[in-house]
Simulated scan of single mutants.
Amino acid sequence: MPVPISPFDRLRSLIGDTPAGAPVIDLSVGVPKHAPPDFILPVLAASADGYRPYPAITGTPAFQAAIHDWLDRRYALDGWFRDVGAVLPLAGSREGLVLSVVTARDLLAKDNPVVLHANPYYQAYLGAAHMIGAEAVGVPTPPTGSPLPDFSAIPDATLDRAIAYYFGSPSNPAGLTASKADWHNLFDLAEKHDFFLFADECYSEIYREEAGPPAGALEAARERPEALKRLIVLNSLSKRSNLAGMRIGFVAGDREVMKAMTTMRNQIASQVPVPLQQAAIACYQDEAHVAENRRLYDAKFAAADAILGPVFGGPVTPPGGFCLWLPVADDIAFVKALWAEAGVRALPGSLLATGEGAANPGRGRIRLAVVSPYDEACEGFRRIAALMQREGAVRELAAG
């Protein structure tokens, strides 16, 4: 089985040498462009001596305490998880997505394992399945409404072979958020077929203020402690604090599961430098910069509704995340035209999903990462609206 090709590499091949039709606005890659918190550099400078020694694989006691404190505040856990679970620092949550599937394979030891993933998907899910030689099976996810996929499309025999299911809330690319009832439904399925649920919550703090914070997997698990045995939660500072380049996050789960992951990580992965842990502590202790981050996104989504809403027949803003997931007649053709005529780089939805033709749930959608500065994002929206109106390329939302 060949290594899965990144959708961004496929996009580069798709556009090829075609010149941009206007000054470039790149809305294809979800790289945060808001400013990181201004206290980061002083924290790093003050802790620079911490770069000398090898750090502990489990992180410093202060890092451990800061993550548990944040989880308690964010999800009203009141110390429950601190008593029964454990956390581990990561060099970004992508590392954890791979470590988690290796851990699940080793603990469950199923023959011919299957890794289930939301479809559309984040490319690391397929890469992790490839790494352990598992069969990756996409579960179709609706573009609107509940983020829960249609598991009825997957045979029970396949679900019984599953070792894990990757599920994001807010989801990427649709920005849908799970309720506690949704999490409980997933716990039911994981228990029935004996697989792990990987809660990819890297967008957990990027939500519309009017929608409020989405429910978390640990928040639901507190109501059902046995679910923790099959739950691994991943988060990072990449989106929350605009620190994608710092590469720091954490994984949380049952103590025995985290013990197995720690043993493996201690042999194959790098420890997280102490100064970066100190910076993470400062970030998790401060919510003001996170609220400002959401305010900036909310302003751009309001502009998207004003500029794109009339073209698409209604509001386009999702409850969470920082992407727009818009319906078009032909996602590949539209993205090519958008680049060649308007200089806007977008990602075709079909490159973010598996399946051929109509069986590809990303077909007829484009993803826009609303990460550019406000004025640049608005100009991108105006160019998209103009192209839609010229080509009549819009598809009814209800049909999406």
Rank of each mutant, 00 (worst) to 15 (best):
A62F: 03
F322E: 07
A342W: 03
C202Q: 14
L77K: 00
D188I: 00
N360V: 07
A282Y: 05
D72A: 07
E292V: 10
S238F: 02
E226H: 07
L347S: 09
R161G: 12
F250G: 01
E356Q: 12
V274P: 01
L228M: 14
E379K: 08
S241T: 12
R208D: 01
I132T: 11
G79L: 10
W70R: 08
P23S: 15
Y165W: 13
S372W: 05
R12P: 11
F196C: 00
D111T: 11
L308Q: 07
P37L: 04
V328H: 01
P155V: 08
N266K: 10
P143N: 04
G96L: 08
L397K: 13
Y121T: 09
V101K: 02
A279K: 05
G85P: 04
L387R: 12
F301V: 02
G85S: 06
G355P: 08
G320R: 03
D286G: 04
F167C: 00
P319A: 10
A164M: 07
P275S: 05
K192C: 05
A134N: 07
R224P: 00
T60N: 09
P147V: 02
L326M: 14
G21N: 13
R295M: 15
I281F: 08
E396D: 14
I67N: 02
S171F: 02
D26Q: 11
D188N: 03
L71H: 01
A136D: 05
Y54F: 13
A340N: 15
R365G: 08
Y203K: 04
F81L: 00
K110G: 08
P140D: 06
F167T: 01
N235F: 00
A359I: 12
A340M: 05
A299V: 10
G216M: 02
L14T: 13
E205T: 02
D17G: 04
D83R: 15
I232Y: 01
E210T: 10
A342S: 13
N112A: 14
L99D: 12
T144W: 14
A124F: 09
T262L: 15
N360T: 03
P318D: 03
D69M: 05
P327A: 11
E341L: 12
I206R: 00
V233I: 02
F39K: 04
T103V: 08
L243H: 09
I307W: 02
F334E: 06
A303P: 12
R73Y: 03
S179F: 00
M246Y: 13
V233H: 01
P55Q: 07
T354Y: 08
N360I: 07
A346W: 01
A46I: 04
S204D: 01
N172F: 06
A369G: 12
D160M: 05
G133I: 10
G343C: 06
D188V: 01
D200Q: 09
L243V: 07
E391Q: 15
L218Y: 04
L237D: 06
Y54T: 13
S270M: 11
A306F: 10
A333I: 08
E95G: 11
A269W: 07
I154W: 03
T263P: 09
K336G: 15
R265D: 07
V43T: 15
L231Q: 03
R10G: 02
A244F: 12
A164I: 00
P140T: 04
